[in-house]
Amino acid sequence: YHADPSLVSFLTGLGCPNCIEYFTSQGLQSIYHLQNLTIEDLGALKIPEQYRMTIWRGLQDLK
């Protein structure tokens, strides 16, 4: 799967570019796929713990 530029820029902007593959490997290719994820969902996606809160907060800021 290839990540949408919106996803790449979002995660890169948060300092988490190495997390892109965790999302794309589950078929979550764009920022729209991420918008309703919970902190528990990020854990289920195996996002490293040190990035989960950062990503979750970033998603809240998009709403």
Rank of each mutant, 00 (worst) to 15 (best):
Y1Q: 04
Y1T: 14
Y1H: 07
Y1F: 15
H2T: 15
H2N: 15
H2F: 15
H2G: 07
H2W: 14
H2Q: 15
A3F: 15
A3H: 14
D4Y: 15
P5K: 15
P5N: 15
P5T: 15
S6G: 15
S6Q: 13
S6Y: 04
L7N: 00
V8D: 15
S9K: 10
S9E: 10
S9A: 06
S9T: 08
S9V: 03
F10W: 03
L11S: 00
L11W: 00
L11A: 01
L11F: 09
L11G: 00
L11T: 01
L11Q: 08
L11Y: 02
L11V: 03
L11D: 00
L11R: 00
T12Y: 09
T12N: 14
T12H: 11
T12S: 08
T12W: 04
G13M: 07
G13N: 15
G13L: 06
G13D: 13
G13E: 13
G13S: 12
G13R: 11
G13K: 14
L14A: 04
L14M: 05
G15P: 01
G15H: 03
G15F: 02
C16H: 09
C16W: 01
C16I: 15
C16T: 05
P17A: 07
P17D: 09
P17C: 07
P17E: 13
P17F: 12
P17K: 14
N18H: 13
N18G: 13
N18A: 13
C19I: 08
C19F: 12
C19D: 01
I20L: 12
I20Q: 07
I20P: 01
I20A: 08
I20Y: 06
I20E: 08
I20V: 11
E21Q: 13
E21L: 05
E21W: 07
Y22W: 03
Y22C: 05
Y22K: 09
Y22H: 12
F23C: 03
F23I: 03
F23N: 01
T24L: 09
T24E: 06
T24F: 04
S25K: 13
S25H: 07
Q26D: 04
Q26I: 05
Q26H: 12
Q26P: 04
Q26C: 08
G27H: 10
G27I: 01
L28K: 11
L28S: 07
L28M: 13
L28I: 09
L28G: 03
Q29A: 09
Q29Y: 08
Q29V: 10
S30E: 13
S30L: 02
S30T: 14
I31C: 10
I31F: 03
I31S: 14
Y32N: 14
Y32C: 14
Y32W: 11
Y32I: 14
Y32D: 12
H33K: 14
L34K: 01
L34Y: 03
L34S: 03
Q35G: 06
Q35E: 11
Q35L: 07
Q35K: 14
Q35W: 04
N36A: 09
N36L: 08
N36Y: 04
N36V: 10
L37N: 02
L37F: 12
L37I: 08
L37W: 05
L37V: 05
L37C: 07
T38C: 07
T38H: 08
T38Q: 10
T38D: 04
E40F: 02
E40C: 12
E40Y: 04
E40D: 08
E40V: 06
E40R: 08
D41Q: 14
D41G: 11
D41E: 14
D41H: 04
L42V: 06
L42Q: 02
L42Y: 10
L42M: 07
G43D: 07
G43Q: 13
G43M: 12
G43R: 10
G43V: 10
G43C: 08
A44D: 15
A44F: 11
A44Y: 10
L45D: 01
L45R: 04
K46W: 03
K46P: 11
K46H: 10
I47K: 00
I47R: 00
I47A: 01
I47S: 00
I47W: 00
P48N: 03
P48T: 03
P48S: 05
E49G: 06
E49M: 15
E49P: 12
Q50H: 13
Q50N: 11
Q50T: 09
Y51S: 06
Y51K: 12
Y51A: 10
Y51N: 05
Y51W: 09
Y51L: 06
R52A: 07
R52L: 11
R52Y: 14
R52I: 15
R52N: 11
M53G: 09
M53Q: 13
M53T: 11
T54P: 07
T54F: 03
T54W: 05
T54Q: 12
T54H: 13
I55T: 01
I55C: 02
I55L: 07
I55F: 01
I55E: 01
W56R: 05
R57S: 06
R57K: 10
G58W: 00
G58Q: 06
G58P: 02
G58C: 13
G58L: 00
L59C: 06
L59R: 01
Q60R: 12
Q60T: 10
Q60W: 08
D61H: 13
D61T: 10
D61M: 10
D61G: 12
D61Y: 05
K63W: 09
K63C: 04
K63L: 03
K63S: 11
K63G: 10
